[in-house]
């Protein structure tokens, strides 16, 4: 039976296929490639440029097998290499190319036959910034009229290129939707982590959402099994119990912390585990035990 991922998509869709390592994303790509032969292009994780052929002949390979004569195939191949800004490498063999150069040749090779389905397996891994930018631009430009599936670990690619997201965990697709859908309403801890928000799972009531026995106040009409999203920036930390209007406030202990130049993300373990995003200055003033508070209006509840 054919996998529905592509059949349910529309021409022009760029679907980011995300998920933890080992979830089966590469395997799924291979299966899709087999199912949509011959109208499919696949950029492998290891690129797999034919080592005994030049870059030009690598790109021309698919064209030759589409029936083009050698001259015409090479001509078109050269055009594709130009699009990927690697035309001057046409005569080089793959072992003489850098990671970014080889990646661009691989993308050209996959696009050369103008396939209806384009599959890319981690195309930006181990690729320099310039090359990645070129590839992104080409993928975007070439998206019209075809379905593109892009396996990636980088949120930047998801945001910059994809209009839809499919989340794959343990061999199964657990969530699909537009980027905004998935971003604002994640349905698995993994995607929530990727997007960088707090995800709570519980039962929605008139008062909010009940998570592990604790009621998190929220304004919602949803009832029953539900998720709730709290952005880290909406979580305020203080050393004493706050007297603000926030109806949600719990004591907790500081746990993992991620310090960057202009912000700090720290996990607070308490009745409800939350990640808070605060300034480095604010962080340096905290005691090991703190109070975390969230306004009810900052808790977004949606059905599971």
């Amino acid at each position: 039976m054919a996998h529905p991922l592509i059949d349910g998509a529309e021409p022009g869709d760029v679907i980011a296929l995300v998920g933890p390592n080992g979830a089966g994303k590469s395997t799924l790509l291979r299966r899709l490639a087999a199912e949509h032969q011959p109208d499919v292009g696949l950029v492998f994780q290891d690129r797999l440029l034919f080592p005994h052929m030049t870059a030009l002949d690598n790109v021309a390979f698919g064209l030759r097998h589409a029936g083009l004569r050698k001259h015409d195939a090479r001509q078109q191949a050269r055009e594709w290499l130009e699009r990927l800004h690697v035309a001057d490498l046409a005569a080089r063999k793959p072992d003489a190319l850098s990671g970014g150069e080889a990646q661009r040749v691989a993308v050209a090779r996959a696009l050369a036959r103008r396939p209806r389905v384009l599959l890319l397996d981690e195309p930006f891994a181990a690729v320099d910034v310039e090359a990645a930018a070129v590839v992104r631009a080409v993928i975007r430009a070439e998206a019209a009229g075809r379905v593109t599936v892009l396996v990636t670990h980088q949120p930047l690619d998801v945001l910059a290129l994809a209009n839809k997201v499919a989340v794959m965990e343990a061999g199964e697709i657990t969530q699909t939707g537009t980027v905004d859908d998935v971003r604002t309403r994640p349905r698995s801890p993994w995607i929530a982590r990727m997007v960088g928000v707090n995800l709570l799972k519980g039962t929605a009531t008139a008062h909010g959402i009940v998570v592990n026995g604790t009621t998190v106040a929220a304004l919602t009409d949803v009832r029953g099994e539900a998720f709730a999203v709290v952005h880290p920036r909406a979580v305020t930390l203080s050393n004493e119990q706050p007297h603000t209007s926030a109806r949600n406030a719990w004591p907790g202990r500081l746990a993992d912390v991620d310090i960057e130049l202009d912000r700090v993300r720290v996990r607070v373990q308490g009745a409800v585990d939350l990640v808070a995003e605060i300034t480095p200055a604010a962080y340096s003033e905290l005691t090991p035990t703190v109070w975390a508070s969230v306004k009810a209006t900052e808790v977004e509840v949606y059905p599971a």
Partner: peptide
């Protein structure tokens, strides 16, 4: 053998894969 897989995706049949991918290597 993955090079032969790559060739198959690009539309090469078994004989062509042998001639262009296997034999040169």
């Amino acid at each position: 053998p993955r090079y032969e897989d790559a060739a198959a995706v690009l539309g090469a049949g078994p004989w062509s894969r042998f001639r262009h991918i296997t034999l040169p290597q």
